[in-house]
Simulated scan of single mutants.
Amino acid sequence: MKYCAFLRGVNVKGTNMKMADVCQVFKDAGMEEVSSILASGNIVFSSDKAVEELKEILEKAMSGHFSYEAFLFVKAKEEVELFWSGIPFEKNENLHIYAFVGVSGVEDVLMEEFQKASHTEDEKAEIINSIFYWQVPKGNTLDSTFGKILGKKSLKDRFTSRNTNTFEKILKKMNG
Rank of each mutant, 00 (worst) to 15 (best):
A70M: 13
K173H: 09
F100W: 04
F45I: 08
V109I: 15
F100K: 04
I37A: 08
G30Y: 02
S63R: 08
Q115A: 11
I131A: 05
L171G: 06
K173Y: 00
K77S: 14
I87C: 11
L171A: 04
S40H: 01
E107T: 09
A39L: 04
L171R: 05
F66K: 07
I170Y: 08
K173P: 01
M174R: 04
H96I: 02
R162V: 06
N129E: 15
E112W: 08
E168S: 08
N92R: 01
S35P: 00
E69Q: 12
S47N: 05
K55L: 00
E53I: 04
D143F: 02
S130V: 02
S46P: 00
F83R: 12
N140C: 11
F66Y: 06
L110E: 14
S35D: 00
R162G: 05
I87P: 01
W134I: 08
E168L: 09
T164K: 06
E79I: 08
K116P: 07
K148P: 02
D108P: 06
S36C: 03
H119L: 10
Y133T: 06
A39D: 11
T120Y: 13
R162C: 04
A99Y: 10
E93T: 03
I87K: 14
L38M: 08
E56N: 13
S85A: 12
F73Y: 14
E69H: 10
L95W: 00
G102P: 13
